[in-house]
C-alpha cells in the first residue's frame, strides 16, 4: 500500500516539475513550486522521514514561497520569450539523464534493509541512542548529539546567509509613526490573524521543546515562529511588525543563537570533556545529554527565527520602497 502511495505521489511530483518547465507566468511557477514542496513533504512522510517532512512543509512551502513572491513583486511576473534555441540544453539533459539512469541500476533496491547505507553507523544510532542519549526521537539524538559539530556548521551557514541578505538588501528603518498599512479592507482576515498568531507562537514553543520526544526541534520551531511574525507583517503591514520585533533585536538574536550553541561546546571543554561533549555537563551522562540538547536546540531555534525573519524584513523593505517610488 505504501508503495502504491509512493508511486502516485512521485508521479504527481514529476508532472508538477514538467509543468514548471513550460509555464511562462512566473507567479504560477512559484505557486506550482509551493505545491511541489508540499508534495515532497507528503513523500517524506510516506518514507518515514517525519522530521524532514515537517521541515519541508514549513520551510520549502511556507518561507521559500513567500520569499519568491516578494522577489516577483520587485522583478515582474512575466518571463520574456526565449530567443535562443533549447535544442542544445535538451541534448545535454537527455545524455546526462540517460547516464544517470544507467547508474541507478547499480543502486541497491529501494527499501532493502541490507542497503550499505543502512549498515554503516545507522544500526548503532538505532540500538544505542535510546540508552546513550535517552531520547525517543533518534533524529534529534543524531542531530544534536552525535553530529552536533555538523549542525553547528549548518546553523552558522544560516546565520551567514542572513548576513549576506542583509548586506545586499538592508533592514527596514524602525518607524515611530504608526501608519496602518497592510490589508486594511480585509476585516475577516485581520480578526482571524489576530486569533491565530498567538496560537502559532505557542505551537512553535511546543515544537521547540517537544522535539526530543516527537517530530520537531529548533529548526522547525524557529521557522514556525518566524512564519507567525511574517503573517503579522503581511496582514498588518511592515511598519507595525518592525515595532513588535525590532530589526535591531533580530541582529542580536541571530548572533546570540550561534553563540549559545558554541558556548555549550566550550562549556564541555571546561568540564573536562571534548568540544560539544554533553556527558560531562551533569554528574549523570544521560542527564548531561539532556541539558546539552535542550540548550543547543534553543540556540538553533533562536538563530533560525532571527535569520529567517531578518531575511523577510530585507525583502519586505525593498518592496515597501518600490511601492513608495
Amino acid at each position: 500500500m505504501a508503495e502504491l502511495i509512493d508511486l502516485v505521489l512521485l508521479g504527481m511530483l514529476a508532472i508538477t516539475a514538467l509543468r514548471i518547465i513550460f509555464l511562462k507566468d512566473l507567479f504560477a511557477v512559484v505557486m506550482l513550486f509551493g505545491i511541489y514542496s508540499f508534495l515532497s513533504a507528503l513523500i517524506f512522510v510516506n518514507l518515514d522521514a517525519v522530521d524532514v517532512a515537517f521541515t519541508e512543509a514549513a520551510v520549502g512551502a511556507g518561507i521559500a514561497t513567500v520569499l519568491m513572491l516578494g522577489t516577483l513583486a520587485l522583478t515582474g511576473r512575466k518571463e520574456k520569450a526565449n530567443s535562443h534555441t533549447a535544442l542544445l540544453p535538451l541534448l545535454v539533459v537527455i545524455v546526462t539523464g540517460a547516464a544517470l539512469i544507467y547508474g541507478t541500476l547499480d543502486m541497491p533496491p529501494f527499501g532493502d534493509p541490507e542497503n550499505p547505507a543502512n549498515q554503516h553507523v545507522a544500526p548503532r544510532y538505532i540500538e544505542e541512542s535510546p540508552q546513550e542519549v535517552g531520547l525517543p526521537n533518534m533524529v534529534t539524538s543524531v542531530l544534536a548529539s552525535y553530529r552536533a559539530f555538523d549542525t553547528l556548521g549548518e546553523t552558522a551557514v544560516v546565520f551567514a546567509a542572513a548576513i549576506g541578505v542583509l548586506s545586499l538588501l538592508g533592514l527596514p528603518k524602525q518607524s515611530q509613526a504608526t501608519i496602518e498599512s497592510g490589508l486594511k479592507s480585509h476585516l475577516v482576515l485581520r480578526v482571524v490573524a489576530k486569533l491565530i498568531i498567538p496560537l502559532i507562537l505557542v505551537f512553535a514553543l511546543y515544537v521547540q521543546f517537544h522535539g526530543d520526544y516527537g517530530p520537531g526541534g529548533g529548526f522547525q520551531a524557529g521557522v514556525i515562529a518566524a512564519a507567525a511574525i511574517i503573517l503579522y507583517a503581511l496582514v498588518f503591514g511592515l511598519p507595525l511588525a518592525t515595532q513588535v520585533i525590532q530589526p535591531k533585536l533580530l541582529k542580536i538574536l541571530a548572533s546570540m543563537g550561534v553563540l549559545i550553541y558554541a558556548a555549550t561546546g566550550v562549556a564541555g571543554l571546561f568540564f573536562g570533556g571534548n568540544f560539544l561533549d554533553y556527558n560531562v555537563l551533569a554528574s549523570d551522562p544521560v542527564a548531561g545529554q539532556h541539558i546539552g540538547i535542550i540548550v543547543i536546540e534553543f540556540g538553533i531555534g533562536v538563530t533560525v527565527f532571527a535569520a529567517i525573519l531578518s531575511i523577510f524584513y530585507g525583502f519586505a523593505s525593498q518592496a515597501e520602497r518600490a511601492n513608495i517610488q
Partner: peptide
C-alpha cells in the same frame, strides 16, 4: 528507517532556503 539521512536532509532544507 535509517535516521542518518533524515538528519542530513533536515538541516540541508533549512540551509537550502537560506
Amino acid at each position: 528507517s535509517n535516521p542518518l539521512p533524515h538528519v542530513l536532509i533536515l538541516t540541508a532544507i533549512v540551509v537550502g532556503v537560506a
